[in-house]
Design a protein around this nucleic acid. Structure first.
Lengths: 196, 196
DNA sequence: ACAATAAAGTACCGATTGGTACTAAAGGAT
DNA sequence: ATCCTTTAGTACCAATCGGTACTTTATTGT
């Protein structure tokens, strides 16, 4: 069987996907126009449909890509700040975003939940699966922090995880609706208080 | 000056607006098609543009309508459950929604924040204004509960308000992303714990 | 009867959407 | 030189979008 026949690919699929993922993250699934995506990805329509099949397929892959990137990013944060510190740092980063830009992209998975639950119900199962991955990721950090004694083991890890998620997701939702620094500073303190 | 000249209106503007508001609440601004809205409102296109001007104007009025309805609704809850009880009841209602339907519409203002912050930036000021109205509404309840001794005055009212908002908004966002009963039950307990 | 207003109904508009079809050129392997 | 595949480019598609224009009919007060 012959290999490398024909004209070789001139773009990297994963790189193009990552660029698309960022664009979905910024604009949402529906609002991300195909022509905009193509421009960002740096490929032409014919290449796109041959490689990714459809906009919906691209979006599904973007959700996967986002989750993988997030896991890697959290591992990096853990190495720098520790398990508990990484969780606090997430809120700290949100605060910095609000202070410098007054807005935030939030979490692609949560954003997609809001967008898909009403109009793109067939994407809900995937969104839910990714949500559970994040839940698992966060709880892993909390369990680890509890084992290390960074966080009290008095409250069950799942409870801490759920409350933590509600605060950070609520925080970014509030920023999008118009909340400012004061609110996020309060919520940062609340996260620190929660993870005692 | 002659009054009541011409053919009288056969539909009530406020009723039609309220129906449109519910439709926006369920489907979001962009996803609510004009033809769907007309069907729900029970009026024809010509009547619509004469009365409301445009889809965007209708949406702005819907945000006003939603906020007014919410204020009225909260006053009702307060009469039944008291100031603190009303705040807890909001979370309780969300839990019931999850138990019976597995989903929630959330808050129209917060939903609009997520939708408009990216693509319909010119609506942000209005969304922000409505967000602050809700903030004021919640804080009024908390202040009242503190004065009555239902809630401890140890923590400042604004802090309690912010944390409360982050939890309920985070909760409905999580439900849309796929969270279930367990998570919301935990968050209901957390709200009760917060408002001590 | 007449004027004034609102309704229903129809037709149409330009713009945009995601997606398809097809041609032609490019580039590497055999 | 031949084959295979991926590019770029163009044209086109049906569907949908919010919105406009216009005619016709209905219902009131004067």
């Amino acid at each position: 069987m012959r290999k490398n026949i024909g004209r070789p690919k001139t773009f990297d699929k994963d790189e193009a996907l990552e660029k698309a993922m960022y664009f979905f993250w910024e604009h949402g699934y529906e609002s991300a126009g195909l022509s905009d995506l193509l421009e960002v990805m740096g490929i032409k329509k014919s290449s796109f449909y041959q490689t990714f099949g459809s906009k919906e397929e691209l979006f599904k892959l973007s959700l996967e890509c986002y989750t993988q990137n997030s896991v890697t990013y959290f591992e990096t944060l853990k190495k720098v700040h520790g398990a508990k510190g990484a969780l606090v740092e997430v809120m700290h980063i949100l605060l910095q975003e609000v202070k410098s830009h007054g807005e935030t992209k939030g979490c692609l998975v949560m954003n997609s939940g809001g967008e898909c639950s009403a109009k793109f119900g067939h994407l809900n199962p995937l969104v839910k699966a990714k949500f559970k991955e994040f839940q698992k990721l966060f709880m892993g950090f909390i369990v680890e922090a509890q084992e290390l004694g960074e966080i009290s083991s008095e409250t069950p890890a799942f409870v801490l995880t759920t409350v933590y998620q509600s605060i950070i997701n609520g925080a970014s939702a509030m920023v999008k609706a118009g909340a400012g620094e004061k609110e996020i500073e309060i919520l940062l303190e609340q996260v620190k208080l929660l993870l005692k």
